[in-house]
Design a protein around this nucleic acid. Sequence first.
DNA 1: CCATAAGTTGACCAAACGGTCAACTAATTG
DNA 2: CAATTAGTTGACCGTTTGGTCAACTTATGG
Lengths: 208, 208
Amino acid sequence: MGRVSDARERLLEAANTLTWKLGYNAVTVDAICDQAGVKKGSFYHYFESKAALSKAAIEDWWQTKSRPVLDRAFSVTNPPLERLKLYYSALHEIQVQRQKVGEQVLGCLGFSVAMGRDSVDPEVWETTQHVLQRKRRYFETAIRDAADAGLIDVPDVEASVQAVYSLFEGAMARARIQNSPEPLVGLYEQTLRLLGAAQPAAPKSQVA
Amino acid sequence: MGRVSDARERLLEAANTLTWKLGYNAVTVDAICDQAGVKKGSFYHYFESKAALSKAAIEDWWQTKSRPVLDRAFSVTNPPLERLKLYYSALHEIQVQRQKVGEQVLGCLGFSVAMGRDSVDPEVWETTQHVLQRKRRYFETAIRDAADAGLIDVPDVEASVQAVYSLFEGAMARARIQNSPEPLVGLYEQTLRLLGAAQPAAPKSQVA
DNA sequence: CCATAAGTTGACCAAACGGTCAACTAATTG
DNA sequence: CAATTAGTTGACCGTTTGGTCAACTTATGG
């Protein structure tokens, strides 16, 4: 009954596009509406507040954008360390493609929003926390599997998980700041060093 | 001639306190004035805009807060790798002290602001970029010195500098997100692994 | 001691903000 | 073909935003 519309989906996408680029606080309801081609009245027909939209948008981004990439790379059918390699190269590829189309390198949406902490709506912030935790678990499982398979040599697996994850998020954040995929180059080799894993043929770093 | 005042200094400090906590966009001129105990009219007597204040405040933060810590830790009188260890433990100590006084763990001010990119005034953003670059150079020099002294074993020094710096900023950012110094624990040992340096007695990770 | 320059104040402004609402339009279904 | 229900619209509201200004106060130096 009633008519149908994809305005809700357009709002979710617009919210993510803008939040990813500008951050939570700098994005206005009017800007989201403009980008989505939706009038403000309609906005509040679908969402009771900007915070509610953001919560839904981040969850949607996780389900439709972030998780599929993770699931593909971190499939248990892949060897543990290969999963990391696949994930890194997938992300690197995404950023390179974005640049080719003239778009900006934006790093990790969840991480950027989470950095806002006290200036982000508490419920929105909690949502990003959940998303980041789920993401971190992919890293944890892969590294634990690698440890069980005797592929790595570390004194403390949990500490290594933290370090690999910090290195990863740090590189993604720097890619955003520099607007360049360059900090992601060689990430896998550096991760192998962190994990005390056998090194492949060492490649020279490529600086654009 | 005329009277004297420390209102300018109070404004600089208030701007940093609030920006560090809330980020550039979430901080308002009114809030800065409240925090500094200065009326808005006076604000614009000292600074021509919010962006001008922020630029001056970040530069001030670098000179008075960030740089002294770096200069102490990265003194060339210290062995190269020891410099990193000193810096990490100094930062860890700062965060622990903050927590004891009931304040929040806020990570690196420059990095947080730099993450804002498109939502931050261009000149302010450029200022943070300069600050971060100067900071990165401390890492670079220490690691190059370590390489020259044969203390580390890496195929590509520049790539290692990038990795160590990414790991560091990633850990700082995660400390902010988690409001805990925990991600900074063991950072030095992980850095040694990245650099292929001789490991000291491996400590167990301490999770609060 | 008094002119002058530096510093202070609160009222004010236009624009932008998140959010509301009553009226309107158009598909769907019994 | 209604009646129902989902979706749309633009005018509107109170608040907050960054910024302005003319009048006022006070320390200092000649």
